[in-house]
Design a protein around this nucleic acid. Structure first.
Lengths: 211, 211
DNA sequence: AGTTCATCAGCTATAATTACCTATTTTTTC
DNA sequence: GAAAAAATAGGTAATTATAGCTGATGAACT
């Protein structure tokens, strides 16, 4: 972690081209050295054993294991590794989860060289880095989130069934409850999520990773 | 297009890191030269005017304009430019459309250096390149697609409005047509897409890149 | 023991969607 | 210019979803 040695970066992304992109950006940055990379989050813990790393750059949406889970696992086993999330779009609602999981920064895939290096510099010196767009999202989601109401398991179950194109009647017989009850749940769901239509609800659910 | 000169590559992708990735891969390939890049599909036509290009690499899912639309426009204005699509996942259902629009190849973002160069080599010599995974998808979708019916522009317009949570009444007043007409369109859409509910329809639409 | 919360269930009424049907006008294509 | 495709619009009925109420039960927490 001293300033005079090279900081070792490990990259996790299921897209080879993104790995190559970061790699090429790092090639011009003498302070940083690639310690390894992988497109399979499942094998990252092992690889980190063999390849000492200071900063881990990880994608969020990956098959088999999300960046959030990976962050938790890595932080548990290697608490000193700093983690920066890389994402396609700024997904406001999941950022809080990522922060809770222990990330030190969050950058978008449309980031250029300057911003990437800036993020790495900040994080390696013990700070954090969240781009402008991200910061705005965080602020938005904090204010929005305070008045948000938690959905119960049953409600989420019903959202999933709605997403699978079941109607109220079908849901009621599938769950062995009355159609009235399903309607009540639906009503409460709409109220809690502050949505008006099934379409809006499912978008909300997708954003919040319920489905 | 001769073998002795460098082939000029233009890259379009809304993610800077992907552009960098391809760029770094090309840097090691003496036969290829970057003629330009852009993360805004809308400005590509202009840029191609100023930067003669042999092969265009374009993302499919981009904001403001999809890779499909871009392909059509580029092919119209510069018929000699070969186009290779780059995509996140192998999206079987849109590949045929891309082929119709005029692409010569299709690669995934988890492509490595070897496959990228292979694709470029094939395409610049007048051939095509579709990876193994893609080829399989194409075969699959050909059987399914034969009985599929094309949606009209108006129908797609209406799907988009449904996706934006407009009801029939609102759609009718937004498009200055009768509610009956909207219902007719809806009916035809459901029939053509072989879907039963709004939820199913929007999933179909998302898969087929209408929205 | 009391409180909160999730789940369940009913009622009435309105609004919206979907399924049938037919038919005209406009635009595109050959 | 004829034929085909797309967009337009109407009606009637049945089904489904949503809004606005009330209220009972059991489990968990304090």
């Amino acid at each position: 972690m001293n300033n005079h040695h090279q900081h070792r970066i490990f990259i996790v992304d299921d897209h080879q081209l993104v790995i190559e992109g970061i790699r090429s950006l790092l090639a011009d940055a003498p302070n940083y050295l690639l310690s390894g990379f992988s497109h399979l989050p499942l094998q990252v813990l092992e690889l980190l054993d063999e390849n000492p790393t200071d900063i881990l750059l990880t994608d969020i949406s990956m098959p088999l294991m999300s960046g959030i889970e990976l962050t938790r696992l890595v932080k548990k086993k290697f608490p000193s590794i700093k983690i920066i999330a890389i994402s396609m779009h700024s997904e406001g609602v999941v950022i809080k989860e990522m922060v809770d999981a222990g990330i030190s920064g969050y950058i978008l895939k449309n980031t250029g060289r300057a911003e990437l290096i800036e993020a790495l510099d900040r994080v390696r010196s013990g700070g954090t880095y969240f781009g402008e767009e991200i910061t705005r999202e965080i602020l938005n989601s904090f204010t929005a989130r305070d008045q948000e109401q938690k959905l119960t398991n049953r409600e989420i179950e019903i959202i999933k069934l709605i997403n699978e194109e079941y109607g109220n009647k079908q849901i009621s017989s599938k769950l062995f409850i009355s159609e009235r009850t399903v309607e009540t749940h639906r009503k409460n769901i709409f109220r809690k999520t502050n949505t008006q239509s099934v379409v809006g609800l499912l978008k909300y659910a997708a954003q919040h990773k319920f489905i």
